[in-house]
Design a protein around this nucleic acid. Structure first.
Length: 773
DNA sequence: CAGTGAGCGAGCTTCCGCTTGACTT
């Protein structure tokens, strides 16, 4: 039995530390928070200074039980949770639950997992910082009050099961407002002039590309300019050479890792986190939920050694980075490889790719700046005062560029810099061709998951551990969808001056293509507008930043947390009451016109199950007709014609094998029905509005084959089937599904073996694990 | 599972932040 028990938050961390400390220490993990507010309304006593009640959630009972036992047996318990607000609170909860003396318990902290750092920490334990704990309680209580008072209002005024909160509602707001900015964006066109010159010399072929810095607003202006250039003389008027430097980006934090993995590897933020988690558990990288860009001294020297041996000493430039983001709490290091001399790892392709990204980024951060030479040549035109400009770039010393270049969100259309051919002042140039091309201004870019995380971080909203879950929540609630959208064709004009002649060409390009972008839904917009109308304060982009300031004051012992909550809650709760009482139900209703068949009014509105179109009124004698809007249709934009189209379902397609085939849209999406059987059209290219009888017949045949392949074996008399599912083979007994153990071959299982497996399997409860009472 | 949509009333939903597995058909 060890004399010392040390408790940290993460089990992977516990393992590493235990190795470092040896047999005198038992290091265990508490797996994050061990207590939380209960879900019912006894959680916060509003009459009694907002005093919170804490309970141990069902899934933490086991961990707590074990820690209790170990702490009883230990001579000394060391609370080594993370050094931030949440970590301090976790230690305080641990002290309470494990019956440790809150006054004298040994609290230690370290920012890097090295022997020195940990031993130093053990040498200088401190007390629990109760001011920091108070700040955390204020954070927790405020979030609960906001979330659990706003959400029920939405159930009553908009739609059931919706949610609102300090973080998620502002995330949705960003997306809704971006979409409206795009909607109201006015595209303007202008003409960009580029020229191509022949600068061949001494038998060496070379060309020079130059551009007019200002664009022309109209075609006529552009044409007038080209006209002036007919027969003009072009000479180099000026050449400027300027040195420039490029610096490497800081090592990864959670947010920047998510952004780069999104841009370079097309990972969703959830994918990035789950791959990083595996690398972390395998000991390949440091902790992946961090807001710090700090590298430990040992990591910095490991980088230095690696860079010197791999690239040479001139490439090494060891440096410390300072975290700039406002809300950062810096409990961990930056995300980096644990061993810098390991350039790659084994594992899945995804793990290898993400690891390489982390390795390169870390190494590059400790490398020299790149030295660049920028050359700008101005070209005079004999017939007009405007000058053309040619720009070139030469990398004199590549430095960190050898390893890593950070990507950007905006597409680098005009960002091609190349080397210029040798030029001299006064040199005359031979014009090959000059173009004036119509270009269009671009609307703001929609958010990707990763660029939304970036924005949230800038606003100080959310934490590294919540970025990915927040993005998944707003999609689960149906406020936001992540989608690809096809672009559309756009016509543009190009004027071309060649051989003294100007010609006009009409061309087309594809514009507006979107890949994996976040779009607001109807319900997202309605909820957002409702919340902004009634709860301005919470929806303000600066709300979190403001209350964070107050949390800091609480942490510094300058403010009492209960008083701070009271100041916020009193007016907030008043808004809650008046909104419940006075606000109208939100329907997003829009009149579309009249149905030519029945003469009844047609409207679009939000229904209990989502956006829909309706013919006729509820008060009419005849029941109204209803139809669900299609995925890309919105209440704000649907037209009468499009709405009437929706009522054409169900469609009779014809006959297959002697019985009728019908296509329609149901609660679970579009489907085809034949002989009382349903065939879903989800995840196919087929559409109930356009599907033909031939396509439907083929689908039915295909599904029959797929269903047959699903069955590996069948024991009919016992009602047992061995099936192939997306999670591996399983046995179906009546309505029960039983997983087949990995070491058994599903192809050869006998009836007896099946019965045995079924017998041993735990009786599965329907649905998710039941909630603890 | 499969053409929900009124209104009534039952009973349910919901926050943010800290951690991993267990589980899904």
């Amino acid at each position: 039995m060890s004399k010392n028990l040390m408790i940290v938050e993460s089990p992977a961390k516990a393992k590493t530390i235990e190795k470092i400390l040896g047999k005198d220490f038992l290091v265990k993990s508490c797996y994050g928070h061990i207590r939380d507010l209960p879900k019912d309304d006894t959680a916060i006593d509003k009459e009694n200074n907002y005093s919170p009640k804490y309970v141990i959630p069902a899934d933490k009972k086991q961990v707590v039980k074990e820690l209790k036992k170990l702490s009883k047996d230990a001579e000394e318990v060391w609370l080594a949770t993370d050094e931030d607000r949440e970590g301090e609170a976790i230690s305080w909860h641990l002290a309470n639950v494990l019956d440790l003396d809150v006054e004298s318990v040994k609290r230690i902290v370290f920012h890097e997992i090295t022997k020195n750092a940990i031993l130093n920490a053990v040498d200088s334990p401190r007390k629990l910082n109760m001011d920091l704990v108070s700040a955390q309680q204020a954070r927790r209580v405020l979030d609960r009050l906001v979330g659990f008072e706003l959400s029920p209002i939405l159930w009553k005024k908009v739609k059931s099961s919706l949610s609102a909160g300090r973080v998620q509602s502002v995330a949705v707001r960003l997306i809704v407002e971006k979409e409206r900015d795009i909607d109201s964006f006015e595209v303007k066109s202008s003409f960009k002039v580029t020229a191509l010159f022949d600068v061949s010399k001494d038998g060496i072929n070379a060309t020079l590309k130059a551009e007019l810095p200002d664009r022309f607003p109209t075609k006529a202006d552009a044409e007038a300019f080209l006209n002036k250039c007919i027969g003009a003389a072009f000479t180099i008027g000026d050449i400027q050479v300027k040195p420039a430097k490029k610096s490497p980006a800081a090592p990864f934090t959670t947010s920047t890792l998510q952004q780069e993995a999104s841009r370079k590897l097309s990972f969703s933020v959830a994918r990035t986190m789950s791959v990083a988690q595996r690398l972390y558990e395998a000991g390949k990288i440091t902790y992946m939920r961090t807001d710090s860009v700090n590298l430990s001294d040992s990591a910095i020297s490991a980088c230095e050694a690696q860079i010197k041996s791999q690239f040479g000493p001139e490439y090494s430039n060891p440096k410390k980075y300072v975290t700039k983001s406002s809300g950062a709490q810096e409990a961990h290091e930056a995300i980096r490889p644990t061993e810098m001399n390991q350039e790659s790892v084994e594992g899945s392709v995804e793990e290898q790719k993400l690891y390489q990204l982390i390795w390169k980024r870390t190494l590059a951060s400790q490398m020299s700046q790149a030295q660049i030479e920028k050359t700008t040549a101005r070209i005079n035109i004999s017939t007009t005062p405007e000058t053309l400009v040619a720009q070139g770039e030469v990398v004199k010393f590549d430095g960190f560029l050898k390893v890593y270049i950070e990507s950007r969100d905006e597409d680098p259309e005009d960002d091609q810099s190349t080397m210029l051919p040798p030029l001299s002042i006064g040199q005359t140039l031979q014009l090959l061709q000059m173009d004036a091309t119509e270009r269009f201004s671009r609307p703001p870019a929609r958010y990707t998951e990763a660029s939304l995380v970036k924005k949230l971080e800038e606003l100080g909203i959310g934490r590294p551990s919540t970025y990915a879950p927040t993005i998944s929540t707003i999609q689960k609630r149906g406020y936001v969808v992540r989608e690809n959208r096809e672009g559309h064709e756009r016509a543009y004009i190009m004027l071309e001056l060649k051989d003294g002649q100007i010609s006009t060409q009409n061309k087309t390009e594809i514009t507006g293509t979107e890949k994996a972008k976040l779009f607001p839904t109807d319900i997202g917009k309605l909820v957002n507008d409702f919340l902004i109308q009634h709860f301005q304060r919470v929806m303000d982009y600066n709300f979190t930043a403001q209350i964070e300031k107050e949390f800091d004051e609480i942490a510094a012992g300058q403010k009492e947390w209960n008083a701070m909550i009271d100041v916020f809650y009193k007016p907030f709760h008043e808004d809650v009451e008046t909104t419940l009482e006075k606000a109208e139900r939100v329907t997003g209703e829009r009149a579309l016109g009249t149905d030519p068949e029945s003469g009844k009014p047609v409207i679009a509105r939000m229904g209990r199950y989502g956006p829909m179109a309706q013919i006729g009124k509820a008060e009419d004698d005849e029941k109204p007709r209803y139809a669900k809007l299609r995925p890309q249709q919105t209440l704000e934009t649907i037209s009468l014609e499009e709405a009437l189209e929706l009522f054409k379902l169900p469609r009779k397609l014809g006959e297959f094998e002697g019985s009728e085939v019908v296509a329609s849209e149901g609660r679970f999406g579009p489907y085809v029905q034949h002989n009382k059987k349903f065939y879903g059209l989800k995840n196919t290219d087929l559409d109930p509005f356009t599907i033909s009888i031939d396509q439907a017949s083929e689908l039915i045949r295909e599904r029959r084959v797929a269903d047959a392949q699903k069955v590996i074996r069948e024991y009919e008399e016992n009602n047992i089937k061995i099936l192939r599912g997306p999670y591996g083979p399983y046995i179906k007994v009546g309505n029960r599904n039983v997983k087949i153990p990995k070491d058994r071959d599903p192809e050869t299982l006998s009836l007896e073996e099946c019965l045995e497996i079924i017998d041993k399997a735990p009786v599965g409860k329907k649905g998710r694990a039941r909630k603890a009472k």
